[in-house]
Simulated scan of single mutants.
Amino acid sequence: MIFRLGDFHFPDDPARLYPDTPGRPWVLEVGFGDGRFWPHFAPTFPVTPNYLGVELSGVSLLKAHRRLSAAGLGSGILTKLPADVLVREVIPHGALDVIVVNFPDPWPKDEHTDHRLLRVPFFQLAASRLKPGGAILLTTDHDEYFEFAVQQAHASGVMSVQTGEPPAAALETKYALKWRDLGLDVNHARFTPTAHAPVPHGDVRPYPEDEPTVPHAVLTLPDTFTPTDFDKVTIRMPQSTTTIILLDLYGSLRRDGWVTLAHVIEGELTQEVLIGITGREDGTHLVRLAKFGGPIITPGVKAAVGAVTQWLESLGAVVKHRGY
């Protein structure tokens, strides 16, 4: 199965995700590529675990979905998301048995090390989401990244490190086969939590069915309001990693009003959302997050509704109500 972010709950219940096998071990694979690892790794368990795979490549997502379905593993869940967003927002505390990271992007340039997955914050986050006795399994061909990950695990204060041979299944992945053909070795480590950092879930929720809770504002537009020209607006929220870019404005085809396309960047999570500016019978206009695309309501998305409202205020609109 392929899930969008909006298909999850925050956090989610394994019994909801896997209603037929709620009590089985839960394995998360980060960066599953074309899906070669899981068909080899799943049979090493007494019963097939519940599987959740996360990947950034849409092409890989489709390839892996076909491969797992052909192998009779179609009950696993695949999603296209940043790994830390998925682990932080979707995974309950103490729910995972194993996190597998095979051949992650090493981001080899010095100025890019902050993009690496296996750093102190992720180890602390993962420790809070793993069951007692659970582990992160890392296999990589990149020596420097391996040493970096081991150092970061020790620095996290919540992980012990055991090096050794990788699972045989890790040597069947696309990159493992490439390096094996070249006669090169790989590194493997098992990171086991020794403590649990209290990493909470964030302020994230799906688009609600209850309309009053959707971020919105009610305002009166000036009589001279004719937005024929629109310049891109970029807003960087103070003391946060959130950036909001209002990209474009479109006239509505169905009713009096417009639709704004907003690009919302919150750390590793990026969403494109539509914010409607819709005329009402009393002459006011409603500024509201649209349901199209299944947006996730985050602090940044709320701020995007506020940014559209502030832009309209700068053009002479008078706000009567704010609900964001």
Rank of each mutant, 00 (worst) to 15 (best):
G58C: 02
L177M: 14
E55H: 09
N187C: 08
D97A: 12
V301S: 08
P238I: 06
T270F: 02
T284R: 05
D229A: 14
G53W: 03
A176I: 02
R254Q: 04
T140R: 05
L261E: 08
T194N: 06
E268S: 14
R24Y: 06
A42C: 04
T192W: 01
L274Q: 07
R16D: 11
T48H: 01
T243Q: 15
D13I: 00
I2L: 03
A155F: 10
A168V: 02
A71G: 11
L312I: 05
V87K: 00
F225S: 13
I235Y: 05
L17R: 12
P14C: 03
D7K: 10
P121M: 03
R280F: 02
G306Y: 08
E55R: 01
P104E: 03
S69L: 04
A197P: 01
K174G: 01
E313A: 02
A126C: 10
R288Y: 01
T228L: 13
G279R: 13
S160Q: 15
T44R: 09
V301M: 15
A195R: 05
T192S: 10
G157R: 14
F3M: 02
P212W: 13
L118P: 05
R190W: 10
R180H: 15
L269N: 14
A70L: 01
V85F: 05
T213F: 15
W38H: 01
T242A: 09
L86A: 10
R255H: 03
A262I: 06
P49T: 05
F230V: 06
V54P: 07
P92S: 12
R129W: 01
L62P: 00
V233E: 05
L17P: 10
P215H: 14
L117M: 15
L17W: 03
L5I: 02
G300I: 09
F225C: 12
G300S: 08
K131P: 00
D114G: 01
V101N: 04
